[in-house]
C-alpha cells in the first residue's frame, strides 16, 4: 500500500469506529502526547450524494453529521480527524492517532488501536452478512401434476 492509501484506510476506520470503542482502546494505549489544536473540534454537515439509477447523474440525498478537528504535535506533525456524528472527543482522538501514525508510534498504535478496531468492524460486518445469508431463498420446483 502507498502512504496515501494507508492513511486513507486508517482515517476511514477511525471515522467509522464506534466512539466508545475508540475511546477505550485509546485510553488503554496510554499515550498522552503534547498537542495543540490547529482547528478545534467542529460539528457540521456533509451533503451526501447519490446517482440516479446508481450510475447516472448525481443528486443530493441529504446531509449527515460530521465532526472535524486538526491537531499539531510538539514535533510539528499535523493530524486530521473527520468522523461521523457529533463526537468532539472522537474527532480529537482520530486526529491525534492520524498524527501519531505518521511518526515513531505507528506500530504501537496499529497494534493497540487500529487492529482491534479493524477486527471488531470485520466481525460486525461478518455477523450481518452471515445473518443475511441465512435469509437467502432456496427455490425448489414443486412436482407438476401433468402425468
Amino acid at each position: 500500500m502507498t502512504k496515501t492509501s494507508e492513511r486513507k484506510a486508517w482515517m476511514g476506520l477511525l471515522a467509522r469506529a464506534p466512539a466508545g470503542e475508540l475511546n477505550r482502546l485509546w485510553s488503554e494505549a496510554g499515550l498522552a502526547p503534547d498537542y495543540a489544536h490547529l482547528r478545534p473540534p467542529e460539528v457540521g454537515g456533509v451533503m451526501v450524494r447519490g446517482r440516479a439509477g446508481n450510475t447516472g447523474a448525481p443528486f443530493n440525498l441529504g446531509e449527515m453529521t460530521v465532526t472535524r478537528c486538526a491537531v499539531r504535535l510538539a514535533d510539528g506533525t499535523v493530524g486530521h480527524g473527520y468522523v461521523q456524528g457529533r463526537g468532539k472527543t472522537h474527532a480529537t482522538q482520530a486526529a491525534l492517532i492520524d498524527a501519531l501514525m505518521q511518526g515513531g508510534e505507528a506500530e504501537t498504535l496499529r497494534a493497540a488501536v487500529l487492529s482491534p478496531l479493524q477486527e471488531a468492524e470485520d466481525a460486525r460486518r461478518t455477523t450481518r452478512a452471515a445473518r443475511a445469508a441465512a435469509t437467502k431463498v432456496d427455490f425448489f420446483t414443486m412436482m407438476r401434476g401433468e402425468d
Binding site: V43, G44, G45, V46, R128
Partner: peptide
Amino acid sequence: RTTLPRFGASHPVGTSEMRCDRRISATFK
C-alpha cells in the same frame, strides 16, 4: 440542520458496493 456549517459534499455513494442486509428482485428469480 440549518445551524450546521456545511463542510462539503460527498462523492456519489456507490450502492454497487453496498453490504446488503436485504436484496430482492421481483423480476428475476
